[in-house]
Amino acid sequence: MSLADDFRRAAGSFASGVTVVTTSDGEHLYGITATSFVSLSLNPLLVTVSINGYSPFLDEVAATGCFAVSVLAGDQREVSQYFSTRGRGRAAGAFPGVPTVAQATGAPIVADCLSWFDTRLHAILPGGDHQILIGEVVAAGSGTATPLLYWSGGYRRLDPADEGVPARVETFADALSARLHADGLTPHQLIEAQHALEPAAAELAAFRRSPEGLGALKEALDAAREAVASAERFTERSVRFHAALGAASGNPAIAASLQALARSRHAHYATGTNPTATRRTLAAHQEIYDAIAAGEAVRAREAMTAHLAVVGSRLCCEEPGEGEPA
């Protein structure tokens, strides 16, 4: 048995969703079944799908500059088979028997699919005997059905009696963080949320003074201090301090809420990171940490409130000023 055979058997053991990738030039529609779809990036929002290098679909996407990915639901096996049959991937006006809808780019999206991603073509990269389409997502949506799966050479469905393992709160918070960032949380909305949450988190952290919470705050503070030479790394590491503050509060609702602000916080504060702002941020975070470590709840709340006031004055006023990352 050859290595190629071993590879096929190993790859076939990976269960995947089933997608239909489509594009349109305004007159004709083009579609192909693919299981090699991957979510690539949250900033920017990118997805990828690999297409056989000999497929004419690649030329159509290169010409239109867009493509859509429809993730098929469990009852859409026939749709997958339609688009995987040679000669059916091109149609004038509409695909026979497969209703579609258009969103932002005009690329057709399979009606009643489990979820969909409408993208502008970002790049086409070589990948051996395949080409890798990278799309920047401009619109997306999802439903509540179960997915169609492909495993070991055949179609599968989820067991409806299997309720699965409940997702951790952190998973939901991270998904909400991506959604808030994609929807465009404004600086004013971000600061409002921080004022509502972070002084209370600092106060609770000072009340509890848990060794784990203090350790996480100290680690985040030290990591930011070591990254002062790089504005990007400093911003990324200083944002960790706020996530650690949520965990140190001991309240899972506050911790999840602060985690949900992470991407928007990083995006808004990154543009204002400079040497002066870095020094101010480190000093403010150190003051907050010292108050928490000393168990001084009122001082911790006031220190966080004062820090957010400085940050808010930079983000939400019209007059340009010195940046202050959080």
Rank of each mutant, 00 (worst) to 15 (best):
R301M: 05
S142T: 10
A220K: 07
C316G: 12
A283L: 13
R168W: 11
M1P: 10
A206P: 12
P44W: 09
L261E: 01
A229I: 10
S177V: 01
T273H: 02
S39W: 06
A73S: 15
F14E: 05
L46P: 02
D112N: 14
D183I: 04
A270Y: 05
G97K: 06
A220G: 11
S257G: 10
Y269T: 12
T186M: 00
T171D: 14
L42H: 10
Y54D: 13
F172V: 12
P325S: 08
A102Y: 01
A167D: 14
A94C: 02
S2Q: 06
I134Y: 02
A227L: 06
H307R: 15
V239M: 14
L245P: 01
E170K: 08
T33Y: 05
R237K: 15
L180C: 09
P320I: 01
A104M: 14
L148K: 01
L308H: 07
A294Y: 03
L258M: 11
G323F: 01
L217A: 09
H188V: 12
A92R: 13
H307N: 13
G250H: 06
H28M: 07
C113I: 07
G106C: 11
M304P: 06
T305I: 04
N274V: 06
H122A: 15
R279M: 09
R209N: 00
V79K: 04
S50C: 15
G53W: 00
R225V: 06
R225K: 12
A205F: 02
S70P: 01
L221R: 04
L149Y: 03
Y155R: 08
R88F: 09
D162T: 02
